Amino acid sequence: MCQPARIFAAMVAEHVELALFEQSLGNIEGLHRPFCDRVADAADKTAGSVLFDVRVDGDSCVQRMAAIGYGITGTAIIVLAKNGQLRCASVNGDTAVLVAELAAWYASPLSEQAKGDHCGAAIILLAKLRNSGHFTRF
Results as ranks from 00 to 15, higher is better:
residue 112 E to W: 10
residue 44 D to F: 04
residue 69 G to T: 02
residue 5 A to E: 06
residue 68 I to F: 00
residue 127 A to F: 03
residue 55 R to S: 15
residue 67 A to F: 04
residue 49 S to R: 00
residue 106 Y to I: 00
residue 122 A to G: 09
residue 41 D to K: 02
residue 34 P to W: 01
residue 107 A to H: 03
residue 36 C to Y: 00
residue 76 A to H: 07
residue 127 A to R: 10
residue 79 V to L: 06
residue 93 G to S: 13
residue 119 C to T: 14
residue 36 C to E: 14
residue 103 A to W: 14
residue 128 K to V: 02
residue 91 V to I: 05
residue 30 G to E: 05
residue 70 Y to L: 11
residue 8 F to Q: 12
residue 42 A to C: 14
residue 33 R to M: 12
residue 49 S to I: 14
residue 97 V to Q: 14
residue 96 A to K: 14
residue 11 M to N: 13
residue 29 E to Y: 08
residue 56 V to A: 13
residue 104 A to P: 00
residue 69 G to V: 08
residue 17 E to K: 01
residue 40 A to N: 04
residue 40 A to I: 00
residue 116 G to Y: 04
residue 87 R to K: 11
residue 2 C to N: 11
residue 30 G to A: 08
residue 66 A to Y: 00
residue 102 L to G: 07
residue 10 A to G: 11
residue 71 G to R: 05
residue 53 D to C: 14
residue 130 R to E: 03
residue 129 L to A: 07
residue 54 V to R: 08
residue 74 G to V: 04
residue 109 P to A: 10
residue 132 S to N: 14
residue 58 G to E: 03
residue 120 G to Y: 08
residue 12 V to C: 11
residue 43 A to L: 00
residue 22 E to W: 09
residue 83 N to G: 05
residue 3 Q to E: 13
residue 120 G to H: 13
residue 42 A to V: 15
residue 91 V to Y: 02
residue 4 P to F: 12
residue 64 R to M: 02
residue 113 Q to R: 13
residue 67 A to T: 01
residue 66 A to I: 03
residue 64 R to K: 05
residue 11 M to I: 01
residue 64 R to T: 02
residue 105 W to C: 00
residue 88 C to S: 15
residue 53 D to T: 11
residue 132 S to G: 14
residue 93 G to P: 01
residue 80 L to I: 07
residue 48 G to M: 03
residue 99 V to S: 03
residue 131 N to M: 07
residue 31 L to V: 13
residue 112 E to R: 06
residue 127 A to S: 15
residue 87 R to P: 03
residue 123 I to G: 09
residue 105 W to R: 00
residue 94 D to E: 09
residue 23 Q to A: 07
residue 42 A to Q: 04
residue 94 D to I: 04
residue 102 L to A: 06
residue 11 M to D: 10
residue 49 S to N: 05
residue 17 E to G: 11
residue 129 L to V: 07
residue 5 A to D: 09
residue 30 G to L: 02
residue 77 I to D: 13
residue 27 N to R: 11
residue 3 Q to N: 10
residue 72 I to N: 08
residue 26 G to W: 01
residue 134 H to K: 11
residue 110 L to G: 01
residue 93 G to T: 10
residue 54 V to Y: 02
residue 13 A to Q: 01
residue 53 D to W: 00
residue 18 L to Q: 07
residue 75 T to W: 00
residue 72 I to H: 11
residue 14 E to M: 03
residue 101 E to D: 09
residue 115 K to F: 12
residue 96 A to F: 06
residue 87 R to T: 12
residue 96 A to C: 09
residue 28 I to T: 13
residue 8 F to R: 08
residue 55 R to W: 00
residue 70 Y to C: 12
residue 73 T to K: 09
residue 49 S to V: 15
residue 21 F to T: 12
residue 16 V to K: 04
residue 38 R to S: 15
residue 37 D to G: 05
residue 124 I to F: 02
residue 119 C to I: 05
residue 66 A to H: 01
residue 2 C to W: 15
residue 92 N to R: 03
residue 54 V to N: 09
residue 133 G to I: 05
